[in-house]
Design a protein around this nucleic acid. Sequence first.
RNA 1: GGGCGAUUAGCUCAGUGGGAGAGCGCCUCGUUCACACCGAGGAGGUCGCAGGUUCGAAACCUGCAUCGCCCACCA
Length: 943
Amino acid sequence: MPEPRDQSQNVPSPDNQFSMPTAFDPHPVEAKWYAIWQEAGYFQPRAPREGETPFVIAIPPPNVTGVLHLGHALQHSIHDCLLRYHRMKGEPTLCVPGTDHASIGTQVKVEQHLFATEGKTRHDLGREEFLRRSWEWKDKYGRTIIEQMKSLGCSYDWSRERFTMDGGYSRAVLTVFKEWFDKGLIYRGLRLVNWSPGAHSTVSDLEIEFRDVQSHLWHFKYPVKDSDRFIIVATTRPETMLGDTGVAVHPDDERYRDLIGQSVILPLMNREIPIVADHFVDKEFGTGAVKVTPAHDPNDYEIGQRHGLPMISVIGFDAKMTEAAGAYAGLSREEARLSVVRDLQAQNLVEKIEPYSHSVGHCSRTGVVIEPLLSEQWFVAMKDLARPVADAIRMNRVHYHPARAAETSLVWLDNIRDWCISRQLWWGHRIPIYYGPHGEIKCSLEPITEPGWTQDEDVLDTWFSSALWPFAVLGWPDNLEREWYPTSVLITGRDILNLWVSRMILTSLHFVDDIPFYDVLVHPTVQDVFGLRMSKSLGTGIDPMALIETYGADATRFGLLQLAGGAQDVRFVDQAEAALGEEAVRRWVKEQNGKPLPLTWDGKPTERYPQMQSARNFANKIWNASRFVLSNVPEEIWNKPNGAQWPDWDSLDIVGQWIWTSLGTTTVQVELLLDSYKFGEAATELYKFIWGDFCDWFIEWAKLKFREGETQYVELAVCVLEGAMRLLHPFMPFLSEEIWQKLPKTANAPTSLSIAGWLTQDARVSARNYMNDPSTADFLYIQDIIRTIRSLRAEAKLAHSQKPVIVMFMLDEQKEGRFGLWEEETFHIHPKLKQNLLQFVNLADLQVMPIDAPRPQNALSASLPGVEIYLPLEGLIDVPRETARLQKELDERSADLQRVEAKLSNPQFTDKAPSAVVAKEEAKRAEITAAMEKLRERLAALN
RNA sequence: GGGCGAUUAGCUCAGUGGGAGAGCGCCUCGUUCACACCGAGGAGGUCGCAGGUUCGAAACCUGCAUCGCCCACCA
């Protein structure tokens, strides 16, 4: 158990006041609080009560071999922000974390490691030993990303951590397979699949990377049978011609119309193959005639199916030419290509060879060129399963944020193709199909050990198991914890909306008869500073752990959340990249595929990523504001058993009422924005409140009050700070906890901010008071006046030691109803307030005169609505300079007036625009006219 | 090729019909009293281009240009 906070009394211990260093050091704070939170079990929720809606997230399980990248860091910042927010609001809040076995990704890594360290392949080890090594690998490296999430502060229920190959999960996978098999939804078939000779397995579309390759377009002459004509075909893959079983032309192509139905003699193989007509063929491309190799090209496969062409596999699983390639058998694809071209040239059957650039599919795991191959594979029949998913999305049972993301899924679902689920790998869920001695095929959850029976060698596509994630981690198939299901929201990137999200809905509807989550939130893709997708394989990755090291976890989270507006992609600024220049970066990425960029950064480490630097500065600002408030808490408050209390509203001055109000309205804003997943705006609201309102205005003002010994003002400062820490906690959990713990609190206060609950009614009561007493808005008016006075001071180049007199000429109606500012009877500025203002702006005196009183000579001046502000100067003022300034303002106002006049003199406008808009324009005209009049007077007074 | 989105200050981005905004950066001034990871003041924009709708367009429509992402992939 953690050391409980000493609640017997609030003591002004050295820890509270004097040992706070002037700069916030995040790392000790992070380590301390995460350990305490976890040990205390704050991340494990209570069970939901009857009728209560819990908040539940099952995180997208990252690969066991993975490390946190910037996209993850953003995603988990969002997760944890929502979790902490809902937990503080008192909802039962559960987050189930875990990792994915990532079949092919992990296997390839283990194989690479094996080869590098021992020079062996998996076949040298055998299946059993290889799997043992893979589990070892998983145990060793699978922790990394989990530890990194903890570094970020994620408040996930680690006692529930799952792995997609743990016992219960495997049972879920096999159960799904068997049920679909028994229903006939899983079948075996000969299909063209993406074969990775590197991984020696089929791979999913997602695991193919298309790269632009400089190659050639070869034009071959195929002799037409019983004729001296040739038909010329163009190809990028000469070696596949050995497997050609047809030539296709467009049915409307005049050049070939008479040849349709005839045949050609395939050179080198001397095989007679038909000429068919197919709409797929583009008349404009190449020669308008296509060689058809159904066994090695997806489009040719389709054409072959339509015309009943045979399929001849000339390339084998080892990426070498097969026996069917005749004389070329045993050659590699590359060797065969050279030989075929050479032999055709010898026969004078090569028309021409053009340079040609096109994109070629490479295995993203091994980098080897993908070979489309015919192979026996297991498939899921998707059509009937997909329809209910599309229905559920169309009926808004699942809400996508943004809504247009649903369209992506609908297009995919409406054009669904059967899903190839078998992979020729060892690491993964082995297919529970057993073959009997007499050709029997059985699906069994338990191993069949009878003699003569063997299990299918293949494993399942990783996404097959991922598709079950939300309910499999909540107890299915044994005992689904319905109180936590469906989960609340799934947070993901755009790229796996179909591969993963749609399939989760599919399995959930089928097996649990319910949706898996109410909301799907698509988060932005983080791009580099030039707008390119960030990718480690492109050398453009940024390590979030380095950000945490440099800026702290709180700043990293806050900085990332500030970027997370909607689903709009965001750019992450790296000054080192920017310095290198876009052209250089792109050239490097293109030429040095996979190698890290040659980036150097000589400046301060914190200045490299300005978006993070800004967040770190914010954290430091909060730290110092808190340090200042704490250093002013007097003994008597530390000794109070209930700590600081909200003061009486009516006893506060205008500034106190204003900051209290601002806390209340900020709270409402943050709630609204978080409820609608607008993290960037919520973060900005907090930034503006804490830095702009609390630090820049309230604390500066409070300095005067603290010096005067106004204890209740200290209490107010503590209470506002306490509320601000609650608002901040979902964004910056460590810093907010650290400060919150230092504040004087009631004896029975919770032991941690993370479970302390959301803002109290007291904290928000001011919003109601504001509605009843709009005079608090007057402080915004005072701010305007203060800014104007400061501006005049700067204009006059007054030293800080010089205290000028300010004279304000004010309309009476400007004073009415503002009794926080003015004495009720005399309309004089309230003496107490005036005294504070003089100190605040560093003035000798502040005089308020009637609007028609004579203006001082030799003065700088400015005006706001209803008030003119004069700074009389004893010495000479710079007349030309001041004249120019006033003239410039006059010109600007004049332009404004012209615009307004033009509108108002247009009968179309006055007739058709809403009367409120017209009235507004009229008021504007009056205001501008008055202001211009004053400007002219001031100009005249100068000259 | 199809779909989606973006284009607003030097940079990153808000702003969905009625007087162009924020943060960072930049310039000037200021370090005895929370913070230089700071404070005060200031400069800076024909809202990608061209049409259209409207009394009125940064916003709505059309086209074009540029960029990005997703899907399909050109023999």
